[in-house]
Each structure stands twice: as structure tokens, then as C-alpha cells.
Simulated assay, not measured.
Amino acid sequence: MSPLTTSIVLSSLATGTIITMSSHHWIMAWVGLEMNTLAIIPIISKQHHPRSTEASTKYFLTQAAASALLLFSSSINAWKMGTWDITQMTDPHANILLTSALAMKLGLTPMHFWLPEVLQGSTMKTALIISTWQKLAPMTLILLTANNLSTPMLLTMGVLSALTGGWGGLNQTQTRKIMAYSSIAHLGWMVTIVTTLTNITTLALAMYLFMTTCMFSTLILSKSKTIQDTTTSWTTSPTLVITTMFTLLSLGGLPPLSGFLPKWMILEELISQNLSPLATTIAMSSLLSLFFYLRLAYTATLTTSPNTTQTNHKWRFKPSTSNLLLTTSSSLMTMVLPLTPILLY
């Protein structure tokens, strides 16, 4: 892809998200989502490979259906209530359709099947964009309409997403699919609390973006596409292995690291709202996610490749990518927990 084409596509991607995040009219929000979808299609399919073509087709069909459903729900609300304002989404039937559309945009259960397949057919950098930047616009719409969305539907999808993200990642060997199920699980946690406290949802989204960016940056730097590839990541940089381990433990939500902060606040708020069974269920689901995070951390840090003589070692090779994202996100991913009082009060 030429530099001019790349700049046009990336600027369109950014513009679509900004239009959606700053709009008050449903038509403008829909336009931003459509720009976002159309801009990322050439990024996914630029490899000229059957897998990337399949991934871009799946992504386009899913996102187009979700955008059409969103436009349909906003049209119903405008027909019955006489307003196109995003914050005035008061018709219950339109809200159910809107919740389904945004869940399909994000990849929440039961509309999650496209996400692992699309990430697996994309490159690591494209998977990073889909897992982080592409979540901003739908999450903004959820935060804007949180007071009107169907609470039982969101809670049900949140718990199912947390469970699906845990169960689905257990038998995966591809790191991109593991990160896809990790994304489903984290989005489930966010959606569970969005109707109660949107500021905790914003905090959880920010921490998810930091952790996912850091994890994908380490995978890109070590060129690890499978779990077996992580066993030779120490040949790129021993320090990178330590960063990978801390990132995985933070994704699992272990207390000394920043990933514990959003889960702690979400569980505390759910218990204060007398939703203890729900809090217990998603807390148990995080144990499933923690299992494959620990498995990945074990293979990356405590094992070496069984075929060391045949493996193409990367010792002291100059990294082909910039480390700016990794260095920025790794510090935020590990050291935010002591700042909890400042962030919350």
C-alpha cells in the first residue's frame, strides 16, 4: 500500500471515530461508523491472501448489518418520539435493537463469532487496530445511551461475554485468537457496569486499551503468532519477556498490577447494587481467562523451544518496529494501581 493510500485510509479511520464520538445526531453517528468500517476494509485485506480476504468480508458484512440495525433503531425512535438526538433514545423497542447493534459492533456474546476469525485473518498490527481503536466509537454510543438501554439485556450479554471469553480461549494456540477472546471477556466486564456507573466503564476501557496495546506490541516485536513462537521470544530481548509476563498477569487482573483496578471497582459496585450472584459469576469467569494468560506467560518466560537447533533465533536482531507504543503502554499497564484515589475521587 502506497504512503498516500495509507495516509488517506488512516485519516478516514480516525475521522470516522471522531465524528461518531462528537455527534449528537444519529445520522452523523451512523456516518462516522460507516466511514470507520469502510476505512479498515483495505487495511485488513491488503495482504492479498485468502485468509485476509475472508476476514475483510466477514468484518464488512457484520459491521454493515450492525450499522443498518442501528439506523433502523434510531429511525423507529425518531418516528415514535420525534427526535434524532442520541441521548433521547426512549422507545423500548428501539433500545433493544440499538443494544443488539452495538453488541454486534463490539463483538459481545452472542454476536461474537466474527471477532476471533477476523483477528486470525489479519496481521498483528491490524488486529491491534480492531481490538483497540475500533472499540472506541461503539463504546462511546453505549456510554451516551446508557441511561436508556435495556439493563437486563446488557447484564446478560456482559456475563455471557465474560464466560465465553474465558471458555473460548482455553483451547486456542494462536495468540491472535487468544487476544480476541480476551477482548470479548474484557468488554463483558465493561458492559456489566455501564448502566450503573459510566465512569468505572471509562476507566475499564482505558485500562483495556493500555493492556491490549502493550500485549500486541510485545507480540509484534517478538513475531509470536502461536504459543510455541513465544518460547523463542527471549532471543529477541530478555527484557521483552519480563514485559510480556507482566502484561499477561495484568490482563488476568492480578492485584499488584493495573489490570486489577477496573475489576476491583466493578465487583465492588456490583456487590453494592445487590448483584452478588452476578459479581460471583464474572469473578469465576476471570479464573478461566487467568488460566490461558498464565499458560502463555509460562511458555514465554519459563520454557525454551524444544527444537532449538532448527529454530531461527533472533538474538540481537534489530527490531523492525518502533517501541514507542510498547514503552508508553507498559508503564501505564503496570503502575496505575497506586493512583487509584486520584483516578476515582
Rank of each mutant, 00 (worst) to 15 (best):
P138F: 01
P138E: 01
L141I: 14
I142Y: 10
L144F: 12
L144M: 13
T145P: 11
T145R: 13
A146Y: 15
N147G: 13
N147V: 08
N148P: 14
L149N: 10
T151G: 00
T151R: 02
T151E: 05
P152H: 11
T156H: 15
T156S: 15
G158A: 08
G158D: 06
G158P: 03
V159H: 04
V159C: 12
L160E: 14
L160I: 15
S161R: 08
S161F: 08
A162R: 07
L163H: 04
T164A: 13
G165Q: 02
W167L: 15
W167V: 13
G169P: 02
G169N: 03
G169Y: 01
G169E: 04
G169L: 03
L170M: 08
L170H: 03
T173S: 10
T175D: 08
R176A: 01
R176N: 07
R176W: 04
R176I: 01
A180F: 11
Y181P: 11
S182K: 06
S183R: 02
S183T: 10
I184K: 00
I184F: 02
A185L: 07
H186L: 06
H186F: 05
H186W: 02
L187I: 15
L187Q: 09
L187P: 03
G188L: 07
G188W: 04
G188Q: 09
M190G: 05
M190S: 08
T192E: 10
V194A: 03
T196P: 01
T196L: 10
T198V: 08
N199W: 09
I200Y: 03
I200F: 06
I200V: 11
T201I: 09
T201Y: 04
T201E: 07
T202I: 05
L203M: 04
A204E: 00
A204M: 00
L205F: 12
A206M: 02
M207W: 02
M207D: 06
L209Y: 02
L209I: 03
F210N: 00
M211I: 14
T212Q: 15
T212F: 14
M215F: 01
M215E: 00
S217P: 11
T218G: 06
L221A: 11
S222C: 15
K225H: 14
K225A: 09
T226D: 10
I227F: 00
I227M: 04
Q228M: 15
Q228S: 15
D229N: 11
T230C: 12
T230P: 01
T232E: 10
T232P: 03
W234M: 07
W234L: 06
W234R: 03
W234S: 05
T235I: 06
T235P: 05
S237A: 14
T239Y: 09
L240Q: 11
V241A: 05
V241N: 03
V241W: 00
I242M: 10
T244R: 09
F246C: 12
S250A: 15
G253F: 05
L254S: 10
L257H: 01
S258K: 07
